[in-house]
Nucleic acid binder design. Sequence first.
DNA 1: CAGTGGTCTAGACCACACC
DNA 2: GTGTGGTCTAGACCACTGT
Lengths: 259, 259
Amino acid sequence: MADSIRGPGHLADVVVVDRSSPVPLYYQVAQALQQAIEVGMLPPGLRLDNEIQLADDLGLSRPTMRRAMEYLVEQGLIIRRRGVGTTIVQPRVRRPRQLTSLYDDLDVAGLQPSTAVLSLGIAPAPPEAAERLGLAAATPVHTAVRLRSARDRPLAHLVNYLPTTLPDLGTGVLTVEALQSTGLYRLIRSAGVHLHAADEIIGARRATPDEVRLLQEPRGAAVLTLERTAYDDAGRVVEYATHVYAASRYRFALSLLAT
Amino acid sequence: MADSIRGPGHLADVVVVDRSSPVPLYYQVAQALQQAIEVGMLPPGLRLDNEIQLADDLGLSRPTMRRAMEYLVEQGLIIRRRGVGTTIVQPRVRRPRQLTSLYDDLDVAGLQPSTAVLSLGIAPAPPEAAERLGLAAATPVHTAVRLRSARDRPLAHLVNYLPTTLPDLGTGVLTVEALQSTGLYRLIRSAGVHLHAADEIIGARRATPDEVRLLQEPRGAAVLTLERTAYDDAGRVVEYATHVYAASRYRFALSLLAT
DNA sequence: CAGTGGTCTAGACCACACC
DNA sequence: GTGTGGTCTAGACCACTGT
């Protein structure tokens, strides 16, 4: 069996670039390499050729090749050491926590998510929410209360507060129907708000009697709590949320890379 | 008062580069800009000059200037839009979760952390630990059990498992004294292991009777649980840990950036 | 249209690791 | 030494935005 892939000068077996595509060259290369690593075509521990050689193999300049490699380093797929070289890292299941909604998480996991909107409207913000939103106490805000279920079992109790100053959110965008069919974040984005960052605090406590009933958990069961403050491009707070999850059936997964 | 900082052509008021320094130019620029943003010298919403102009102001090439800007984008401090320009973003308290130990977290928070080593030695790995470490059931592994306190109150019960195959970890590096004075991660690193990535799972449940006693919590109190699997450069599992925190006094904080 | 950031090239010199 | 990745330059062309 030929050493056709691992040998020097054969990167083109793994990666082909299409210069007529609108997709940037560095990204084409990065994606192809990422896939090759994940399917095992480039096994862990393999030492790659130096970047000048690789660039030459693909007919690219060194900076372009280099940019593709930097992407792989960010993804944790390769390790580079000056004076040594570039090595493939053992790939793992990667689920970096991002600014996505629980709905998306469940959807991709095939857990048949569904949402019941318990209430939706404009109401005075509770003290904590008003403070996080940077509003005066009891300022009226959009308030959505939802119950998220997976496989027809209630999983999470979601309360979201949004300032009424958001553009294009008072014109019938925030409706019960829309909330049930898509996630809240997709609605916010389609309303012209550019989500930028979020702070989250994860804690735990015992379920209140209300939560026991809503989540169908035993009395005094442990629940996971998530508080999220989300910001848009301009640094304005566009959302404050408090979520409560049935701890017996939900956990948060993070992937971290060393700096 | 002159518009000396915000006006075009005056970036040099905020940033000075030292070409004789070993610190890369792009990093000098990035750091100076980051600090200027954080202290408010470059206020949120301010539109920066285009990158060619900025590069010219500092006597740098466009790619170098550009690299500094990319760093700031990663940090979430600026927003760039093609055809529009670059805008300063409102800075916030940023505590991105990284691959650090709880000890470091507490230390910087000034919470007077202390550690009691409850047990330390080599013992057969429990099934879960053996599986995560990729070892046969009941393989002997380094096992450390610690009780972490803050302000003299027990806060977390930490159990760590490390394979005995780690280099330089059997020669007296892993001692009770060392564990008490430094964090485990610092010990691992000083043993020549290059930590690379970790997967974490955060959950919650009610405290067991043992945990109630150790953490001095009420019976059946909620606890936060953290499972961590850590990997080195080569993708080998170098640690599996299960931590239990008193939920009444500890929470996890995350900062997320939109992609 | 003019102006912006995004991409790409073809070189150069340097710091570091290993032999 | 020799070879590696890290940094830097001085251009170029393109895609997108707002007027």
